[in-house]
Nucleic acid binder design. Structure first.
Length: 205
DNA sequence: AAAGCCACCAACCGCCAGGGG
DNA sequence: GCCCCTGGCGGTTGGTGGCTT
């Protein structure tokens, strides 16, 4: 298969984006969306390849992106997730609303790798309510945070179902990673939180 | 003040998987 | 079943700015 010519050979621009290009890309996406990245630059009048436009949008221009430094909590969260998921940056990013895989990858290589190498343990992990999914719905992580902070009597029923999930999860010998990819996230987080010592052993059913 | 070094991060590259024809 | 296109992912690079000597 013949590889498509690279952007430069096609006379397309590479390198840093100018504010004007950003403006064109944002207003085009706001008006028409981004169904076809390959066609988008031509339609928008940008001398960029589709891939470059997609990257610029997903890593920088998207309105739901959280700019600024990572909090200590976020860093610890990344370390913990990295221990479980490895270099699956997009999977890690999916658990950190407003953060991109590229950003997480960068912070890992510049800060966190060193911390882990030095044998530093992450602080106690307890994601707060601000950690909602990018679509605005609460993640199982948030849900879990709410549960563990509730009065145990109130949450007993819920805990029972969680426990049952976790047991079935264990009896089927499903790994954490498989659990996440299968959407069995409650069980996944249940185990993580129990292992991290943030919650007590759940009451026996 | 200048040169060298280092850290950071935006952007690129190459590969892969999935879907459509 | 095969080919091609597209989007997504992870690894890597290169420019820039700040700090040190």
């Amino acid at each position: 298969m013949v590889r498509a010519p690279c952007c430069e050979k096609m006379g397309l621009k590479k390198g840093p984006w100018t504010p004007e290009e950003d403006q064109i890309l944002v207003s085009h996406i706001q008006r028409f969306g981004h169904e076809n990245w390959r066609a988008l630059p031509k339609q928008a009048g940008l001398l960029r390849c589709g891939k470059s436009c997609r990257l610029r949008w997903t890593n920088y221009l998207r309105p739901d992106i959280k700019r600024g430094n990572f909090s200590r909590e976020e860093e610890d969260y990344i370390i913990t997730l990295h221990q479980l998921l490895g270099n699956r940056w997009s999977a890690i990013a999916a658990k950190l609303p407003g953060r991109t895989d590229n950003e997480i990858k960068n912070v890992w290589h510049t800060h966190l790798k060193k911390r882990v190498k030095q044998g530093e343990k992450p602080m106690k992990l307890l994601p707060n309510s601000s950690m909602s999914d990018t679509d605005g719905s609460s993640s199982s992580c948030t849900e879990f945070s709410a549960i563990v902070n509730r009065d145990p009597a109130e949450s007993l029923e819920f805990e029972k179902s969680l426990r049952s999930d976790a047991l079935s999860f264990e009896s089927r010998n499903i790994s954490h990673v498989d659990a996440v990819s299968n959407g069995d996230e409650i069980s996944f987080w249940l185990k993580i939180f129990m292992e991290s010592g943030n919650i007590q052993e759940l009451p026996e059913i």
